[in-house]
Amino acid sequence: MKALTIGTVTLSVLVMASCGAGNSQQNAGDSSDSAEYMELFDGSSLTGWRGDTSLWRAEGGALVGEIVPGEELANNSFIIWDGGQPADFELIAEYRMTGNGNSGINYRSEELAEPLFALKGYQADIDAANTYTGQNYEERGRTILAFPGQHMRLPEVSGSVSDYAKGNIWTAGEEVESLGDRDSLRLLIKENDWNEIRIVAKGNQLEHYINGTLMSKVVDDDSANRKLEGMLGFQVHVGPPMKIEYRNIRLKNLD
């Protein structure tokens, strides 16, 4: 599959109200009523993004990733934002998934030399069945750090990642508290419709929200394996034909 790259980014800054409302858990980590956000996607082109243009396009005001029948992937592929490597930030976007696939937003990640457009790092997971949507998955790293409904602490470890990553789960994690029943949380996610995803990363604390509800939280005390800054990218995942759309993608740096 031939991969093409897209040029560098031009950012616009606007002022908008914070998204999400609800109980105290839902508002945890919420932004102020008025704050500066950067729009990461202009709604009409892939300016500022770099990825495989046979998989990604701008269409209908959305950043669209699609796997079509007969063009299945050998590896997960990302479209990568070229505007920087955020450290502490809040990222808000709307997404809609059709088909039976998997996607996600990687952050504080590093780009690998091979395969093309591959990222390693934290991911706010999204899947069509909403089994994993909102969890924290470390792509090409420690695997599942927190399932939906979990607040996890990751202690310091010695040894290799493979010593603790078993069955696609980071077994060294310690559950701090439950954020809710997984089956109940998944009912808050709309199928084949637009949902809002929000990531709040500050220091070693990582929070994932869907439609204003806190789905997972990680406190990463594992200094040998954690990342405190890095690249942003959106994923199309190995698997069945699917389409993922992202729109209204905006980023606020947190001091």
Results as ranks from 00 to 15, higher is better:
Y95L: 12
R96F: 12
N102T: 13
I105W: 10
D127T: 06
P86A: 02
S77P: 06
Y122V: 07
L112N: 06
G84W: 00
Q123W: 11
G99I: 14
I80G: 00
A118H: 04
N100D: 13
I80R: 05
A128H: 10
P115M: 01
I126G: 03
N76D: 09
A74E: 14
L73H: 09
R140Y: 14
A124F: 14
E114N: 12
R96W: 10
T133K: 09
A128G: 07
Y137C: 01
T131W: 08
G134V: 03
P115S: 07
N136V: 15
L116D: 11
E138W: 06
A87P: 04
E138H: 08
P115V: 08
S109A: 11
W81M: 11
F89T: 06
L116Y: 01
F89L: 00
F78T: 03
I126C: 11
N106H: 10
P86E: 03
D127C: 08
G104P: 08
A128Y: 05
N100M: 07
R96M: 15
G84H: 03
T131D: 14
P86K: 01
D127V: 09
N100I: 05
L73Y: 04
A87T: 02
N100F: 00
P86D: 08
D88L: 08
N136K: 05
A74D: 14
N130C: 13
L91R: 00
G84V: 05
W81G: 15
D125P: 01
Q85C: 02
R96K: 15
N75A: 11
D88G: 03
I105T: 03
T98G: 07
N102I: 12
S77N: 04
Q85K: 10
G134K: 07
A129E: 14
G134F: 05
E72H: 03
E139C: 12
A118G: 01
G83N: 05
A87K: 05
G121M: 11
E72P: 03
I79A: 06
E90V: 00
G83V: 03
L91G: 04
A128V: 11
I79Y: 02
F78I: 02
Y132Q: 14
E110T: 15
E72T: 13
Y95W: 15
E114H: 12
S77W: 00
T131S: 10
Y132A: 12
E110G: 13
R108D: 01
I79M: 02
Y122I: 11
S109G: 06
T131M: 09
L91Y: 04
L91S: 03
R108T: 04
L116Q: 08
L119K: 07
W81K: 11
M97G: 08
E139Y: 07
E111R: 15
N136E: 10
L91F: 09
N102C: 10
A93M: 15
Q135S: 13
D125A: 07
I92E: 14
I126R: 04
T98P: 08
R108E: 04
G99L: 11
G83K: 04
G121V: 08
I80S: 05
L91T: 06
L112M: 09
T131K: 08
E72Q: 10
Q135M: 14
R140T: 12
N102L: 10
N130S: 14
Y137V: 07
Y107I: 01
I105P: 04
A118W: 01
E94F: 12
F89M: 07
M97H: 06
G121S: 07
K120W: 05
A129P: 04
A129C: 05
E139R: 13
S109F: 00
R140F: 13
A74S: 09
R108H: 02
E90T: 00
N136S: 08
